[in-house]
Amino acid sequence: MKSIRLVLTLLAALPALAHAALNVFACEPEWGALARELGGDSVKVYTATTAMQDPHRIEARPSLIAQMRRANLVVCTGAELEIGWLPLLQRESGNADIQPGRPGNFEAARYVALLDRPTLIDRSQGDVHASGNPHIQTDPRNIARVGEALAKRLAEIDPGNAALYQARWKDFSARWDAAITRWQAQGAPLKGMPVVVQHKSFTYLINWLGMREVATLEPKPGIEPSVGYLAEVAAHLKSTPAKAVLRATYQNPRASEWLAERVDIPAVALPFTVGGTPGTDDLFGLFDVTLADLLKVAR
């Protein structure tokens, strides 16, 4: 029995020895982009979802299981964002290294203080995330926090390239800090700007720039608004006017546009993640475009 297992292990290990680059499985585009910044040519990044997909609702497709099978490191948001599909990929993959609790499993939300913690955890409140709002990537300071932890984790998993990861993190961190300072200066006019959001996708962005969220189109997280509820929101906006209705590009524009027309404010599709709109091919582009989009409606 032992010798059989040894042979099987060796057989299974053969293809793994063939490629040297660290296989990174990123659940969302922002973490894929971050892993590329920190890993450079030492990592081969597979991004499981696109900006046009709802990260809450992804099919556990066979192609994703195949990628999970070969992953050395899985980088996901966590905080139950991927609970409908990620556990299944992990279980079906037969890959021990990326199981929960292993170094090969990296949950970004663990390195960030989460907002919007529900006081009442009950499904009657909609699709609530017990540990808090998982859309942490809309605040660039969170990207920095996650980046620092991810650089350490890469070094832990691939010690041979530890110095490289550290050097790339230093370089990225300096550029990122400078960019944050720039964005904050650019974003000064946004302070106090009242906005409506379709889903609680931008809580961290709004918090960072000091904007005010005056209404949410979803009556409860993940529950689509009825026309009646939208009319209520419209009435509410008469007394508390807002500058824009924000949504992520993957979200259906119907509700946003209906309201935008009703109360005569622009409906804005923010990129939400890397690749969401033209010009957001990397993390820097993501915030450049987000800021530009918001400043357009602030005037």
């Binding site: 966590g78 905080a79 139950e80 609970i83 929960p100 949950e107 939300a109 663990r110 390195y111 960030v112 203080a113 989460l114 955890i121 017990a130 540990s131 808090g132 660039p140 300071r141 969170n142 920095a144 926090r145 620092e148 932890a149 961190s173 990122w176 800090d177 944050i180 300072t181 904050q184």
Partner: peptide
């Protein structure tokens, strides 16, 4: 962070304050 007017790398460390998925 407001006081420092600086990026997060130097902000109060929050690593590990957020619990793992509640479900687990």
């Amino acid at each position: 962070e407001i006081q420092a007017q600086r990026a997060s790398a130097q902000a109060a460390p929050v690593e590990g304050t957020a619990p793992a998925s509640r479900l687990s």
